[in-house]
Design a protein around this nucleic acid. Structure first.
Lengths: 315, 315
DNA sequence: CATCGTCTAGACAAACTCTGGACAAATCCA
DNA sequence: TGGATTTGTCCAGAGTTTGTCTAGACGATG
């Protein structure tokens, strides 16, 4: 894959700062600040002085971001060699540190996706797990969800519907994705005094991947998230919200249902919740309840951005 | 893994106090107080005087926390060398099986359990997570399951039945236990050429904690485990077993059901499976299917030991 | 040409951490 | 029971760290 003359290799400076910022989730200002203060990167420059980052730079930045997310201070880890960053990050993730596969290859998300599908097809759970491990060092958390996990599950759903995948394969993929998300979520530093969000899935809805991704997102946004799992009656959710004085409740709806039961659960939930507690509804099926949500004053979450917006509006 | 120049290794001071506090569940104030009063740690310092703890420090603190949780007074154990702390913690862990040697020790794990119940009661997910983190330092994996997780879930079940706990609390506990087990399972290295075990739960059975504990156990016994999650039809399980050439299939049954559907699923599974593939059935409800299991030549798994026996018999 | 993205250097405020003393509840001991 | 001890928590004031912001300039883009 990598040509011998070094046309692509991980050390060739070629990425503009905007791209690096997007991919790592690190503010441009902060990228420059880290460079100025700790010399975490030494990007090349264009003839006119603009930064050009290499793939290796991106990997290092992602590692640093992961480490600061779990509580390491940037000043403590900034000067460590990349190998140390990897082991440190691996300790946290709980996965044994794997040999770096070369960031250059991992960046091709489309190809990752194909490989993932292939692993699912052959029920190769090890391959799928390793693939996620690799991806998590090449993509920021939000991108991991948006560009790998969501498309993967959508694709698996399609293949299943057209008979190309069996239920067992879909189940395996779900189990592994769930495990991966859970592991990512498990070591999150929750800031003092963070507001509480409750996440659940209503009665009859068992799919929890969407809810788990919402948990990730909210954790990254600095919330204290109480995850109650799938299939929970409205009164239980409301009770938990009251007891924990939650600022918001997020309900993830998966099934394309115009299931009337969901309507009544939503109504009941809104009625039982403290009026000051915001009700958020996400998931593929959220749109089909649009009018009801408007009536109840519940907020529909269509995508990560609208989620951020909603979270910020009450924080 | 560890470079000879000591770039990592357990004694390098590198963790900030916030991180240590979070990992050990010990308040920052208390960390400093213990250091001041008993010199339990002697963290390195940054150039500006901030504490930097080593991995060894963290382990010691976790042990101390574990011991104080169980009733030891900090002043009594603070000055002990780490080796002694370890044996002390291990003693505590082992006692419930054997006759209580001293009345003092009889409390131990029971007290952890009480704290866990309390955390569940108040929907305090952070406390519960930290409790598991701490427990996992002092207890071996098998003991963790036998003495903490299983009793905890049993107890929660009882409290729920008699109306002292709500569904939301049970859900939270399940979610956290699941997350914890998942994280433990993800750190496993699978030996070359390990035989494959498939673990699942039959149609209609959604509880997966038992299955996940079986996964842990089998991983520790050196198996390559393909976990398919809950609620899977017999033909799917059989298909997966064939495609992966599994040596054995484990089905976990939770519901006390004399559900006839389970019987037929079991029959069908046995019929579809390769005759050389061993069928194992575990879970509380396994016993109620005793005769059928005998008829099918399926092996009933009542406890960890019989599981080991079964695994060894085919490995 | 206007707009946008990026550059440098300095400035700030919020959050974090430090020390050392103090306090109240729980526990122990006579 | 009452006093002493232990132990977790708290405070105030000072210094540090870190993410964000500003201002003015220049190149890229259409």
């Amino acid at each position: 894959m990598t040509s011998p003359n070094g046309q692509h290799g991980p050390d060739i400076p070629r990425h503009a700062i905007a791209l690096v910022s997007r991919r790592t989730g690190i503010n441009q200002l902060l990228l420059r600040a880290w460079e100025r203060r700790y010399e975490v990167t030494a990007p090349g420059r264009t003839a006119t002085g603009r930064r050009l980052y290499s793939d290796a730079d991106i990997e290092k930045l992602l590692l640093l971001r992961q480490l600061t997310d779990v509580g390491h201070r940037i000043g403590d880890v900034a000067h460590l060699p990349v190998a140390d960053l990897r082991t440190l990050a691996a300790e946290n993730a709980g996965t044994p540190a794997t040999a770096p596969p070369g960031a250059a290859d991992a960046v091709d998300v489309g190809r990752l996706l194909d490989q993932a599908i292939e692993a699912v097809r052959s029920l190769d759970h090890l391959a799928l797990e390793q693939l996620f491990d690799r991806a998590s060092v090449a993509l920021s958390r939000p991108l991991l969800r948006r560009d790998l996990i969501v498309p993967l599950m959508v694709r698996i759903g399609e293949l299943w519907r057209c008979g190309e995948l069996r239920v067992a394969q879909e189940h395996m993929a779900s189990a592994i994705v769930r495990s991966f998300l859970t592991t990512l979520n498990s070591r999150h530093l929750i800031p003092e005094g963070a507001p509480t969000l409750i996440v659940a899935t209503p009665v009859g809805q068992w799919h929890e991947l969407g809810a788990l991704m919402a948990v990730s997102h909210a954790l990254e946004a600095g919330w204290d998230v109480l995850y109650l799992g799938p299939n929970l009656p409205a009164e239980e959710i409301a009770g938990a919200a009251a007891s924990r004085r939650a600022r918001a409740v997020l309900l993830n709806l998966v099934y394309p249902a115009a299931d009337p039961a969901v309507d009544s659960e939503l109504r009941q939930l809104r009625r039982l919740l403290d009026p000051d507690t915001l009700l958020l509804v996400s998931g593929q099926a959220a749109t089909s309840h649009g009018p009801l949500l408007a009536e109840l004053g519940a907020r529909m979450i269509r995508d990560p951005d609208s989620f951020d917006l909603a979270l910020n509006s009450i924080q």
